[in-house]
Design a protein around this nucleic acid. Structure first.
Lengths: 335, 335
DNA sequence: CTGAAAGCGCTTACAG
DNA sequence: CTGAAAGCGCTTACAG
């Protein structure tokens, strides 16, 4: 009724007398009235809420800041545009498609999709605005909007960096449980490819699959067979390598160069500081959120896509395999 | 109607014939029917969603893992109990109390309350289940439920640790922008108190207010006047001190001992590893969430309260001011 | 035991 | 220009 107009400015063609309006306002104040958002959502068929879809329960406080940065970007962008963000168990893991469009979300953001192609197809069919936050190699449907990172370019930068430092035999480390992760595979594959393009030997670039055990590094190092640099597909993996190296009194980068992906502020805390390819997760998440909201507000928009460039943050964990740089001589004890 | 019973098992006294039920299921399948959660929420007057109230926009990806750990605990507990978690701009900052109970949340969790007492009173009046996540000194209303951490005990542990190591002149550092933070004040106050109880001199325990500038530490160190240990009210502050010390070639803990609060995995990455009082933020957040859901499900429950004990994680950044321990001799270069 | 009706709290199209 | 009515999609109390 008129109350709606007075209190929310809704109903363009609804006019109300000044006296009536004042009356409504007074009564509302007296009764301590507050509008019910759920009822408004039901009627207006929009909730101003976006849902976050994950393959598995996100660990915000883990060794990697990936999910934290993501949340930062998503909330910042969503709030600025007047949207709320919902985390919901029914959007995690092998999702029941009924829950995807149960009316609570105006749109969905898909984080790190792996095997969820089937579900994404469902979402497309549901006509629920969606944006993927994943490597573009995963996107097959031409109508899909996405934001991704130049994994290929990053892998190439790392390969060129190590090769130009003089490394000729290197290892690319993937955690066993991440072997299904498409980004890990893209990085490993393109690292190898670029390495060979640079002039490296095919059999001098190894892919190492390590399980969660701490002895992986120790065992490998004992039989490293001439490898002078290790690239970890993830930042946390690279940090773990630095920790083991320090425990075994192996000098990084003098004895071994180490590189990671997803450079965050963590990389500035490690000893030595970690060289890594930087993925601006917060900016990417903000962009994806803006895309999503644009799709919500203009459903007929063409698919929105953006690939963020990578940048190599060269810190202290890489050096020529032949000589120790001046930096290292200052920081490391030579017994 | 009967559809509700068949598809959701709702309506205890609603019985339906097997044939009708089958028919309903078939038609639902054909029409690709999915129930609208918003409509259900409206009717049943519950959303199975909790809202998170913040004083300011949380930085999940900052130097501290506080908010990340918090989100971890909240989502884990909430999901396990069938609740969703909503982040909403209208719940951040100086909140309009109308938005607090706009029907979208079954309950509210209040994070790091500072000056929001007024708003909390409103929430109490609204009879919206609420749990505070903040120092107990902030809780004045006897009907308030909360989860907090033993800030006093933590400050006492730090004071005793330093005093027993032999320090006799110490500084407690607070960031200028955190001077209003009640936890910072409780920690500083109780540190000082315990220090004096231990036998320390009143004028040998200084409170240092540092602004964001990087030169704070440098200036202070040049005129440190016999202080041998620095306690930072926050983990990130302590990490910043370690970074400056390293830049100035000051040996921690030989030249200076450093302690922080809110020990997280960050403390294992610093060089040297940071001694800190551990606050189990994720467990605390999980407990607070469980409290909240208990209050939602049984509104007549008495206020729920719990104070988590603190534990001092002694790592490498503290030592006797007189001698360097064996540990340090191994790790640090003596030029 | 089953089905048709009322109603959750709003918004918006419609009649006066 | 204004107000009374219909309806969003469900659940639940009520009548048959």
């Amino acid at each position: 009724m008129a109350v709606s107009k007075v209190l929310h400015g809704r109903g363009v063609n609804v006019r109300i007398g000044a006296a009536t309006a004042e009356n409504i306002r007074r009564v509302a104040e007296e009764l301590d009235y507050r509008p019910n958002e759920i009822a408004r959502n039901l009627r207006s068929k929009q909730t101003k809420t976006i849902g976050l879809v994950f393959d598995e329960t996100p660990m915000f406080g883990g060794k990697t800041r990936y999910f934290s940065d993501l949340m930062n970007g998503v909330t910042t962008a969503a709030f600025a545009l007047g949207y709320s963000v919902m985390l919901c168990d029914s959007l995690i893991g092998p999702t029941d498609r009924n829950r995807l469009s149960d009316g609570r979300f105006d749109g969905l953001m898909w984080v790190r999709m792996t095997a969820s192609q089937q579900i994404l197809q469902d979402a497309v069919r549901l006509r629920l605005p969606s944006v993927m936050f994943a490597d573009e190699s995963l996107v097959t449907d031409p109508s899909t909007s996405y934001v991704s990172w130049d994994n290929r370019g990053a892998a190439a930068q790392v390969a060129k960096h190590l090769y130009s430092l003089g490394h000729r035999k290197v290892g690319f480390v993937i955690a066993a449980h991440s072997i299904v992760n498409p980004e890990a595979r893209v990085r490993a594959g393109h690292f190898r490819e670029t390495w060979i393009q640079c002039g490296g030997e095919k059999d001098q670039v190894e892919t190492l699959i390590w399980d969660a055990g701490a002895t992986n590094f120790d065992d490998w190092y004992a039989n490293r067979n001439g490898i002078t640099a290790l690239v970890s597909w993830s930042e946390s993996g690279a940090i773990a390598i630095l920790e083991r190296a320090r425990a075994l009194n192996i000098q990084v980068p003098k004895d071994l160069s180490v590189v990671g992906f997803d450079s965050s502020s963590h990389c500035d805390l490690t000893q030595p500081r970690l060289t890594a390819a930087r993925q601006p997760v917060d900016e990417m998440a903000a962009k994806a959120t803006e895309f999503l909201i644009r799709l919500i507000q203009s459903p007929d928009t063409d698919p929105l896509r953006f690939v963020f460039p990578s940048r190599l943050d060269i810190r202290e964990s890489t050096a020529s395999p032949l000589s120790v740089s001046g930096l290292e001589e200052k920081n490391i004890c030579l017994h």
